[in-house]
Design a protein around this nucleic acid. Sequence first.
DNA 1: CGAGGCGTTGACACCCATCAACATGGGTGG
DNA 2: CCACCCATGTTGATGGGTGTCAACGCCTCG
Lengths: 227, 227
Amino acid sequence: MTNLGSLSDVLVRDVKALARDRVEISANRAIVKENERCPQIYMVESGWVFRSRGLASGRRQIVNYALPGDILCADSLLFKASSFDLTARTPVSLIRIEAPLGSELFDRHPGLAAAIAWTMGQEDSILAERVVSLGRRDSLEKLAHALCELEARLSAIGQMRGRTIELPLNQEDFADILGISVIHVNRTFRRLSEDKTAEYRKGAIDLLDRDRLAEISAFDPAYLHLE
Amino acid sequence: MTNLGSLSDVLVRDVKALARDRVEISANRAIVKENERCPQIYMVESGWVFRSRGLASGRRQIVNYALPGDILCADSLLFKASSFDLTARTPVSLIRIEAPLGSELFDRHPGLAAAIAWTMGQEDSILAERVVSLGRRDSLEKLAHALCELEARLSAIGQMRGRTIELPLNQEDFADILGISVIHVNRTFRRLSEDKTAEYRKGAIDLLDRDRLAEISAFDPAYLHLE
DNA sequence: CGAGGCGTTGACACCCATCAACATGGGTGG
DNA sequence: CCACCCATGTTGATGGGTGTCAACGCCTCG
C-alpha cells in the first residue's frame, strides 16, 4: 500500500526519475546507525520507522517516527554522519533516491527539492513541539497529545479507520516516545480508559472522545503543517 | 560585534546583495509571535534570541536559542505562520534579508541557500538532541549537557573568554530550557558548585572542570555539526 | 529609602521510577 | 495436542527526584 497518489504530480515525476530501487527491510532491523553515514535519500513507501538514540544506561529516546510518504536522511546531503539510529519498527519498504547536490536538484527536480525542504521544515516543527511536550507537559497531557498527533498524521495519509488507530507500537515504544516509564504509560492509559477517552489494545487504540483528548493536551494541529 | 568575518565569502556576498536593512530590537521584546506570519528572513548580527512556546497554565518552554550568525525564520519560505514565539533576550540587531523563492535562490545566491539549508539541518539536529535530554536525562545531566552545548556554540563564534561563559540567562531561563523548575535549577547548580565542576554567577558561568561536565552528560558535540 | 528582580534555602507533597509478582496470549517444539 | 517459553501487559508497594510554597537576603534602580 502506498500513498504516492496523494503527492503532487511534480514530486511523483521527480521521484520516478530518480528512484533507483526499492529496499525492503524486515521488522526491528537498523536502517542507519548512529555515527554511520547515510549515503542515500529514501522515501518511505510502507511501514513505520523510528529515529531514536540509545543512551549508555540502557535508556532510549525515540525522537520521531516516519510514516509512508516521509523522506528519510534528508540531512545526508549536508552532514557526514547521522547522530541518531533509524530503525524499522515494522517491515518497511523504502524507495532509494539518487539526489543530485545543490542547484541541480532545484533546477531539474523541483518537486523533490520542495519535498525535501518541506520535510525538513515539518520535521523541525514536530521536534519543537516534542520539546514542549517533554519539557512542560505531565504524563497525561503527553499521552493525549501524542494520540492527537498520531491521529492527525495517520488520517493525512489515509490510514485511519474511523476512530481507531492501528499501530505497531507497544507500551514500551510509547514510554520511549513520551520520555516516561513503561509502567507509567500503562497507568496513564488506564486513566484514559476509566474516563472513556481512549482505549489501548494490542496493535490498536480506540479514540472514544477526541475532543477530550485535544482539550487535555491543548492540541493544535497547526505545527504539523498538513495540507 | 559581528562574526560575519568567519562566514564563507559566498555567503557574505549573498547577504550583502540581499540585505535590506538592519533591525534593532530592544531586550525582552517579541520579534515574532505564535500564529503570526514572519514575512522575512533575518540573520542575527548580535544578541540572543529565544524560540519558545507559552502554555495556558503559565508554563513556558524554550525550544532553542539563536546566536550571532544564525538565521531566523528560515521556515517562513515554507509556512504561513510560525508555531512559536521569537523573543529578543538581549538587545538584538538583525539583518533583514529579502530572499527570493525556489530555484532563483539557489541559482543566484548559492551561499545564502546553503546557509539556509545548513541552518535548518543544524536546528533539526539540535532539537533532536534536546528531545533526548528532556526525555531521558535527569536534571544534573540536563544542566551539564546544556553547559557543554553553550560552550561549544559560543566558542564556535569566538564568544568564549577562557573557561567562562558570558550569557544573559538567569536561572528561570535555564529552567525553561531544561524543562525543570527554577528552584531545582538552583539546587542543581549548587551540586555542580560543591563538586567544583561549574559555578553560576549573574551573567556568567565558570566551567571549572569541562571534562567532568562532558562525562556527566555523555556530551558528544557531533550533533552541532560545527565545522 | 523603598521596590522589585533575582538568587538561596528549607519544609513538605506529589508525580513518577523502580522493583516485584502475576496474568495473558501467541509461538514453538516435543 | 499439550507443555513450555517469551513478550507483553497489569497491578501493588515503596522510594526518590522534582515541584510547590514560603521566607529571606542581596543587589540595582528609581
